[in-house]
Design a binder for these strands. Sequence first.
RNA 1: GGGGAGAUUCCAGAGCGGCCAAAUGGGGCAGACUGUAAAUCUGUUAUCUUACGAUUUCGGAGGUUCGAAUCCUCCUCUCCCCA
Length: 376
Amino acid sequence: MKFNILYTDKESKARTGLIKTSHGDIETPIFMPVGTLGSVKGIHQWELSDDIKAQIILGNSYHLYLRPGLNVLKNAGGLHGFMNWNGPILTDSGGYQVFSLAENRKLTSEGAVFRSHIDGSKHLFTPENVVDIQRTIGSDIMMAFDECAPYPSEYVYAKNSLDLTHHWLDRGLNHFDSTEPYYGHEQTFFPIVQGSVYKDLRIKSAEFIAQKNCYGNAIGGLAVGEPAEEMYEMIEIVNNILPKDKPRYLMGVGTPVNILESIALGIDMFDCVMPTRNGRNGMIFTSQGTINLRNEKWKDDFSPVDTNGTSFVDKTYSKAYLRHLVITKEILGAQIASIHNLAFYLNLVKQAREKIKDGTFLTWKNGMIKQLSTRL
RNA sequence: GGGGAGAUUCCAGAGCGGCCAAAUGGGGCAGACUGUAAAUCUGUUAUCUUACGAUUUCGGAGGUUCGAAUCCUCCUCUCCCCA
């Protein structure tokens, strides 16, 4: 995998770049749609590639390991072929599930013992077998197994958690280096900076991660409930330490505003369930602001879903119709809203890339943030 | 014609003397959602009031009772069964 920086902004830390993978190139800054179970919920693969213009999508080790299971994935020759997505795939390690399924797991220095949320069966995830799982999935970018500390966390908890994550990282990296891809294409491994909202821990973690010299680096454990300002502060501190010539991936973030602010701080990659989940729940993001389609005010609004939208759904359907579909829980409503939101996110980062190239990023960003914060 | 059941807050439907402005669903209205256990969850839904609280509600009219959606009388209307 290669990463080249193309343009750097003079007024901020923003930059554009190109990541080359065995499954194609990724222009950064990029947003990566989340496809936990081998499907970006409600979206066809051709819609992802041809309409939404997704350049890379996510999968999840924990979920795919439980279902369909490693045998199926291996027999399918990996996730790309199984789901018929030929672009790049990044897999999360299951570290987030350590956090979100906290009642069903126990952490030891060996790893994390899980109870499946599906049938209660017991499973052990270790830094090593999580690499194996991601080898079996065949993701282009695999993530280290980490603990995403909850917010708020006591300093001592955050520190111990960080030590565990670093310990796991060394083991995961060793295992990665001593194993080979199964399907003939290149795989890379991203370590994850943790440290909750404690500056010294974030600095320590960023320094630890930076010297591993991986192809790219991730920042985790943010947008878990802390104020946005604290998140930006952490990003700034960490990005001052993480190498400039490597892609930086801010995990699980976020709102359109979060993304623009983080691009300005030097982040290159994002993923978030927000466009799809909120879409399914009737919220759409537009360049004018956010819209809760379930609100009565849209009942008779026959204007297009988004006059500035780039997806075919934006011109094909009206707000009133989409509202009707959402209210009546028609599946098509969830699909249209998800397609719209993902296209909006992808177009947002595309515009950001263009503005960075033009040297007008900061002014544009500040104007956009004002609009995007509007509640229509 | 004979016999029986019932009318409850937007709807369905509990409640059968005080803990009832009335369970629970649904619908309506609003909020949440950030490396997806989410096509999910939460709040609210008589009127007035910021609130405390106050005032009218359970087909209609009377009555019994300290107190009635709940008991009694009459009226109106609906539904079911047998002819």
